[in-house]
Each structure stands twice: as C-alpha cells, then as structure tokens.
C-alpha cells in the first residue's frame, strides 16, 4: 500500500460549489501525499460511531476519515468534469483501477483483457465525468455501471442497450443536502452488505460477477434498499420538476 497515493480533503469542497475549483486545485496539488492507509482502514468503525447529523458539521470539524467517506471521490470527479484535472484523475485511478481490474478478472476476463478493459473504463470515466450525478449515485456505483457495461460489450461483442439518459444532464450545482444524503445512503448500503451472513453475501457477489444465470438469482437480497430507492426517486422527481420550470 506504500505506493498508493490518496488525496486527503481537509475541507468539504462540495459544500462550497462556488469556491470549489480553486480550492480543489490547491488541495490536489499540495496535499496529495497524505497517508493513504490509516484513513481507509478507520472508515468502517468511525462511520457507525457518529451520531446522525455529525457529518453535516464536517466543515467546522478538524479533518476526519468520516469527511472523506461522506463525499468519497465526488469532488475528484467534479474536478475532472469541470477542470479536466489530471491529478484528480490520477487519484481516482489509483483507487478504482485495481478494483475494476479485479472485478473484471472475477467476471471471467484474463489478466491482459482485464487490464485493457479497465483502461478503457477509466478513460470512459474521464469522458463522461460531466454526466455523473452525485444526487443519484456514488462514484463507486457509477464506475461499477461503466465497468459492467464494458464487460458485457466485450463478452457478447455487441453494445448492450442502456436506458435512455434523462432528457437533460445532471444539475451544474446539485443541492448539497441531496448529494450528502445519497452518499450516506450508499455507505449504509455498503455497511449492510458487509454485515450480511457470509453465505448470502457470496451469493450476491456471484450474481454480480455473472456466475449466476437469471433463473438462479434470488429475488431477496436481504439488503435494506428501500431508503436508497426513495432517495434516487426523489432526486429524479426534483430534476424533472426543475426542468419543467426552467423550460417554461
């Protein structure tokens, strides 16, 4: 892990959209050698120990792993989208590239194909960064969908049909409470997945690696998906509402 370079965000730039670009650059260039390992190791325990609302105070608190967790990678992707920031991209790459490659290899790709496909996924991330909507997905989720689609295109040698994009892009300055809420829901889901009985968790992983046929996929995941569904539904409604008002 010594070679890993992990950006530490000492403030929460997504709470300050107007100041974001300047500050983020500062952050990325000056603070990029912060310790990589401890923060991510501590995340799991600290997350649950904090009372509700504590994360909202983050901008007034000293740096803590929770802050990183609460907006994990959202600021970096915003920096790629808005400033074509290569240092932010390098940071996202160092975290996600080895995971995407591992996911592809688990899904049946050999090492060389997984490497090539992963590079393609990460390049797509760069090109599509302006389409990422942090009120509807975590960065992990978004990258997962890119990797999954690429995997299917490669395995089946045809472009898989994807749902139509919404008739407009994500908002330029999304409501920060919505962003926070969705990112927190994603962490709770990750926590719930970690706490599942091992047998069930392995089954879900197998389904996502493509080891189960459609008929074998159990309908009941055992995961609390209700809240995150409602969150995404709410974000969609808000987008449609705002759109109607801006076009009239």
């Amino acid at each position: 892990m010594a070679s890993e370079l992990r950006i530490t965000i000492f403030f929460d730039p997504t709470l300050y959209p107007a100041r974001m670009r300047d500050m983020l650059h500062l952050d990325v260039h000056n603070l990029s050698t912060g310790d990589p390992g401890d923060a991510s190791r501590a995340q799991g325990q600290q997350d649950t120990a904090l009372p509700d609302g504590a994360i909202l105070m983050a901008d007034r608190l000293p740096p803590s792993p929770v802050m990183q967790l609460s907006h994990e990678w959202v600021a970096e992707v915003a920096a790629i989208a808005q400033a074509r920031d290569q240092s932010a991209f390098a940071a996202v790459f160092r975290h996600f590239a080895p995971r995407v490659k591992a996911f592809l290899m688990k899904s049946g790709a050999d090492e060389a194909l997984a490497e090539e496909c992963m590079q393609d996924v990460m390049a797509t991330l760069w090109r599509k960064a302006h389409l990422f909507d942090p009120t509807r997905a975590s960065v992990s989720t978004w990258i997962f969908t890119i990797a999954r689609n690429r995997k299917i295109d490669l395995l089946r040698k045809y472009a898989r049909p994807e749902p139509e994009d919404l008739p407009w892009g994500p908002e330029a300055e999304p409501d920060q409470e919505d962003v926070l809420a969705l990112q927190q829901e994603s962490q709770k889901l990750a926590e719930a997945l970690r706490k599942l009985p091992q047998k069930q968790r392995i089954l879900i992983e197998k389904a996502y690696f493509g080891d189960l046929t459609h008929g074998e996929i159990a309908i009941e995941t055992g995961l609390p998906l209700g809240t995150i569904k409602s969150r995404i539904r709410l974000a969609l409604e808000r987008l449609r509402h705002n759109m109607r008002h801006t076009t009239k």
């Binding site: 080895p98 591992a102 989720t141 997962f144």
Partner: peptide
C-alpha cells in the same frame, strides 16, 4: 439504480488486482 448501488459496494470491496 439501487441495484447498481449494490454493484458499487461490491466493486469498492474488491481486493486490488
């Protein structure tokens, strides 16, 4: 997208290749 989020969690938990 909620089921995609499950995939995101799995991706995040992958041992690094």
């Amino acid at each position: 997208q909620a089921f995609d989020a499950v995939g995101g969690c799995i991706l995040d938990e992958m041992a690094e290749a």
